[in-house]
């Protein structure tokens, strides 16, 4: 928000392609606009759609960096467009949709569908012993530090940046990605989930799970929530090796 009265001319080079339109081919389209103080890519793209090109497709929901809708390739690196401030970038900005996910059009991808598939496959919910809970009674206590540690891993916003940056995900269509492995780490840590390592091994003990990871760890570098993906994946791999060899 530094005061600066001479506004730059930004040139946004966006990948355009509508797979639903017969004969459409991918191309780069350049939009010029004047930078405003405090401008984010959310503000810039909204202005382009309002004033220059109403057909440009992209996804924003919260515009506050918490919902994970606006993951895209920003100058070749996956990130959240809504909280990317233009003053941190050169005047030429290239935008492309996240790879790996099904393309809806232009900068919009169907990461929701991918995430639902991952959740169904990995059963990303607490597996309790008994279904019926007596809601009138005092809740089960939980160690405060453990609750904080579970929250830490629960901060994932399913934006897909880790998947888009993943070498394995490019090669293996069914790889669960850092997002999936982190979820397993989260439920493994949660004492309310009664699954044992033998159960988790069934879910991620193969090349589409934790053994598919090549430890390139771009996921860790690009995660907008700074989740400890490197340590979680390494830790989970060790536990799954133990389970696979001794379990």
């Amino acid at each position: 928000m530094a005061d600066n009265d001479s506004h730059r001319k930004l040139r946004i080079h966006a990948l355009r392609y509508n797979p639903a339109k017969a004969g459409d081919t991918p191309r780069i389209q350049t939009y010029e606009l004047e930078e405003a103080p405090g401008m984010t890519l959310f503000i810039a793209l909204s202005e382009i759609r309002e004033k220059q090109d109403p057909s440009l497709q992209f996804d924003f929901v919260c515009r506050a960096g918490i919902c994970g809708s606006c993951g895209m390739m920003i100058n070749g690196r996956p990130g959240l467009a809504c909280r990317t401030v233009t003053k941190d970038l050169e005047a030429d900005i290239s935008l492309a949709p996240l790879p790996v996910f099904e393309l809806i059009g232009d900068l919009s991808v169907n990461s929701g569908k991918w995430m639902r598939g991952m959740s169904e496959k990995l059963e990303t919910w607490v597996h309790a012993q008994e279904k019926a809970i007596d809601l009138k009674r005092i809740e089960e206590p939980m160690d405060p530090a453990l609750a904080e540690a579970v929250y830490e891993l629960d901060r994932c916003i399913e934006c897909g940046c880790c998947v888009a940056s993943c070498g394995t995900a490019r090669m293996r269509q069914d790889f669960v990605g850092a997002v999936g492995l982190n979820k397993i780490a989260r439920f493994r840590l949660d004492p309310r989930d009664k699954r044992a390592d033998a159960d988790f091994y069934e879910l991620v003990g193969d090349d589409n799970g934790v053994f598919g990871c090549m430890s390139l760890l771009a996921c860790h570098d690009v995660c907008p929530k700074n989740l400890p993906l490197q340590t979680q994946i390494a830790f989970l791999r060790r536990k799954m090796v133990v389970q696979g060899t001794q379990g």
């Binding site: 309790a128 809601l135 949660d190 309310r192």
Partner: peptide, 17 residues
């Protein structure tokens, strides 16, 4: 209170005392 406790059982990592 019933809602908070149901969510606790379902897995919300409520901050604890």
């Amino acid at each position: 209170p019933k809602a908070v406790r149901e969510l606790a059982a379902w897995g919300v990592p409520w901050s604890r005392v």
